[in-house]
Computed example of a mutant assay.
Amino acid sequence: MGIDVAARLVEATLGSVATRDAGIDLLNTRAGHAAEVPAGNAIANARSLARMYAATIGAVDGARLVSAETVSRATQPRTDGLSHPSPLHVLPVTHRFAHGYELSRPVSPMLGEGSFGHLGTGGRLAFAHPESGLAVAYSCTDMTGTDTVGPDRRWLPWLAALHETLG
Results as ranks from 00 to 15, higher is better:
7 A>P: 09
7 A>H: 14
9 L>Y: 08
11 E>A: 13
13 T>F: 15
15 G>D: 07
17 V>Y: 12
17 V>H: 07
19 T>A: 14
20 R>I: 08
20 R>C: 08
21 D>C: 06
22 A>I: 09
24 I>Y: 06
25 D>W: 04
25 D>K: 13
27 L>D: 02
27 L>G: 05
29 T>K: 05
31 A>L: 15
32 G>T: 02
33 H>P: 04
34 A>K: 10
35 A>K: 03
37 V>D: 09
43 I>K: 09
45 N>T: 12
47 R>S: 14
48 S>V: 11
49 L>Y: 05
51 R>E: 14
52 M>R: 03
53 Y>E: 02
57 I>L: 01
57 I>K: 00
59 A>D: 12
62 G>E: 03
63 A>F: 15
64 R>Y: 10
67 S>E: 05
67 S>C: 06
70 T>V: 11
70 T>S: 04
71 V>D: 00
72 S>L: 01
73 R>P: 08
73 R>G: 13
76 Q>F: 08
80 D>P: 07
81 G>Y: 03
82 L>H: 09
85 P>D: 05
86 S>V: 13
88 L>R: 02
88 L>I: 08
90 V>Q: 03
90 V>P: 07
95 H>N: 09
95 H>G: 09
97 F>K: 01
100 G>P: 09
101 Y>D: 04
102 E>S: 07
102 E>V: 04
103 L>K: 00
104 S>Y: 03
109 P>F: 02
110 M>N: 04
110 M>K: 04
113 E>P: 12
113 E>N: 05
118 H>M: 12
118 H>V: 10
119 L>C: 05
121 T>Q: 06
122 G>R: 01
125 L>R: 01
125 L>M: 14
126 A>K: 02
126 A>Y: 03
126 A>D: 03
128 A>C: 10
138 Y>W: 14
138 Y>G: 09
139 S>T: 15
141 T>E: 12
141 T>D: 15
144 T>I: 07
144 T>H: 10
145 G>L: 07
145 G>T: 08
146 T>Y: 01
147 D>P: 11
147 D>C: 10
149 V>Q: 12
